[in-house]
């Protein structure tokens, strides 16, 4: 065991040492130049920390904080970006579902689509009570009347829109933080 133990520990002890330990340490410090040097350096370092005082921010810190907080509160947060992304993603899924309905349907023709559309419109005008049925019909008709390529284009467009929107929100959020 080192002959400097437990004195090294006592030198760096933060709490006041018991009287006996303190006396023993003082005796050791008189005899041991190495520990004495450590003790001197630590006492000096501790004193410089204690005397360093508090640093203060430049005047107007609170005003600057309020301005920053107001700016950030106006900036859309990440949650809003995720909502936007989810909405466009959902839109893409709906388009994909419509595409699936159309591709699985049989006997597709433009005349039939026109006829069904006219019936649907007339039905809606005649009887508002059937509005929900008519809407369902319109949904089916629309799904069959648009060429499949358009769905792909719409899905692609919505995806790009979603990504661009997300990038915009991220940029805005970063601007707000500055």
């Amino acid at each position: 065991m080192s002959r400097h133990l437990p004195f090294e520990d006592w030198i760096f002890a933060d709490e006041a040492l018991p009287e006996n330990d303190l006396r023993e340490l003082q005796r050791h410090l008189r005899d041991c130049a190495e520990c004495r040097s450590i003790d001197q350096r630590w006492q000096a370092a501790r004193q410089s920390l204690r005397e360093a005082g508090m640093q203060t921010p430049a005047p107007g810190f609170t005003t600057r904080w309020k301005a920053m907080a107001t700016r950030r509160l106006k900036t859309p947060g990440p949650a809003q970006a995720w909502i936007f992304l989810a909405a466009t993603g959902l839109g893409s899924l709906v388009m994909a579902a419509l595409l699936a309905v159309q591709t699985s349907a049989e006997g597709f023709s433009l005349t039939g689509v026109f006829s069904r559309s006219s019936t649907a419109v007339a039905g809606t005008l005649r009887d508002w009570a059937n509005a929900s049925n008519a809407l369902g019909m319109v949904f089916r008709i629309v799904s069959r009347s648009i060429p499949p390529a358009w769905y792909l284009i719409a899905v692609f467009f919505l995806s790009v829109l979603g990504i661009l929107g997300l990038l915009w929100f991220v940029r805005k959020t970063r601007e707000g933080k500055k």
Partner: peptide, 11 residues
């Protein structure tokens, strides 16, 4: 160098 040690450690 640290200040010269006066011989007594004050807590």
């Amino acid at each position: 160098p640290a200040p010269a040690w006066a011989g007594e450690r004050h807590e």
